[in-house]
Amino acid sequence: MNIRLKPLNEQVIVVTGASSGIGLVTARMAARRGARLMLTARNEQALQQVIREINGQRSNGGVADFVAGDVADEAVVRRVRDQAIDRFGRIDTWINCAGISIYGRVVDVSLEDQRRLFETNFWGVVTGSRIAVEHLRKEGGALINIGSILSDRAIPLQGIYCASKHAVKAYTDALRMEVEHDRLPISVTLVKPGSVDTPYAQHAKNYLPNEPQNASPVYYAPEVVAETILHCADHPVRDVFVGGGAKVVSMLGNLAPRLMDKVMKYTMFTAQQRDQAEQDRLDHGLYGPATGLQERSGRAPYVAESSLYTQASLHPMMTGAVAAVAGAALISLCRRGIANGRSANGHGSGMRPVRNRTNEEFW
């Protein structure tokens, strides 16, 4: 099936989890590029402010509407679809971005909390994907699910989050194969970010004695993830890591799983906790809306504003062309150096080779 996706400035895009972090940055970026947006999250006040902001700056054609609610509620998700069609006439791209985490040993986290996390992270994605495919199968478009590097490699202290992202990966991969088998004009993409500077840890429920944090010496800006998502909205992509570190962790997890177990065991218990006691165990977004309109955490020690690896992954032909040109230039330089060396040692001038007294080799 030859899938053709519209340019962003001609698209109607649904974004879940649009009140903070990656979802908020993606919504704002898509609006600046002229997309029409239907946004959803639990924080109605934050959504209202985002809508006023987007609709008040319409120089690029971007316009937005919203439905406040929980993606764990199928009725809410269907209302998102219906309102997008009523307002804009169709949907071209559906982005499942809503998510939440829990920090704590899996045996300590209550079953109630574990089920609640799955309602958002997994069943919210499943519900959104089913409703999106129902609509997109007619005219085509893109379905983009946000996974994680933890879709590939589990870590301690976020076991239930890892389990939900493993489930999202398996569901997305199975759905993609079924869509392709039925020759539906839908691109199904899984985006797998590494550590991103968002209020992810602040919004998570915490069972640890200290304040939690995302574990990485280097974080990627949420704009890097948003750029990747929007690229996938108008270019069919199977899956993509955001950040070269995410790819490395995934590869090592597959090639040397036991070694990675040991690395994680000795590093992740301290790397995911700040040197600060837990502030308020009730201040989290597991059961209700967390603080909205936060794009970044403000806690990251270093934030990378771009990813060469991800750009290379998304533009393989351009990367190949650059590599070919660089390779040709390198070969040319090597040949020139060899020719100059031979000339300096008498080759090509009728002189005999000179023995190198240092290493007893002939040039």
Score class of each variant (00 low, 15 high):
Arg274Gly: 12
Cys232His: 00
Ala256Arg: 03
Ala221His: 09
Pro217Ala: 15
Arg296Ile: 14
Glu211His: 01
Phe241Ile: 04
Val322Lys: 15
Leu293Asp: 03
Pro236Leu: 15
Tyr219Ser: 11
Asp234Gln: 03
Tyr287Ala: 08
Val325Phe: 13
Ala246Tyr: 00
Thr267Ser: 15
Leu282Gln: 12
Gly292Asn: 03
Ala326Trp: 06
Val263Asp: 11
Val248Met: 14
Tyr220Asp: 06
Ala290Asp: 03
Ala329Trp: 11
Glu227Tyr: 00
Leu286Glu: 01
Pro316His: 02
Val240Leu: 14
Ala226Asp: 01
Ser307Ala: 12
Ala328Asn: 04
Leu293Tyr: 00
Glu227Ala: 14
Pro222Lys: 10
Pro236Ile: 13
Ser313Thr: 02
Leu208Phe: 02
Thr310Val: 10
His315Glu: 10
Val237Thr: 04
Ala312Ser: 15
Tyr287Glu: 02
Leu330Lys: 07
Pro236Asn: 11
Leu208Trp: 00
Tyr207Lys: 08
Gly243Asn: 08
Tyr287Gln: 02
Phe269Leu: 15
His235Ile: 06
Val322Phe: 09
Pro217Asp: 10
Val224Trp: 02
Met251Gln: 12
Gln213Asp: 01
Gly243Asp: 07
Gln272Met: 13
Gly244Tyr: 07
Ala312Ile: 08
Asp261His: 09
Asn214Ala: 14
Ser250Met: 13
His284Gln: 03
Asp275Leu: 14
Thr291Arg: 15
Ser297Cys: 13
Leu314Glu: 04
Gly288His: 00
Ala304Asn: 06
Lys247Arg: 14
Leu230His: 00
Ala233Ser: 07
Gly253Pro: 01
Arg281Tyr: 08
Thr310Lys: 12
Lys205Val: 05
Glu278Ala: 13
Lys265Trp: 07
Lys205Glu: 04
Gly253Arg: 04
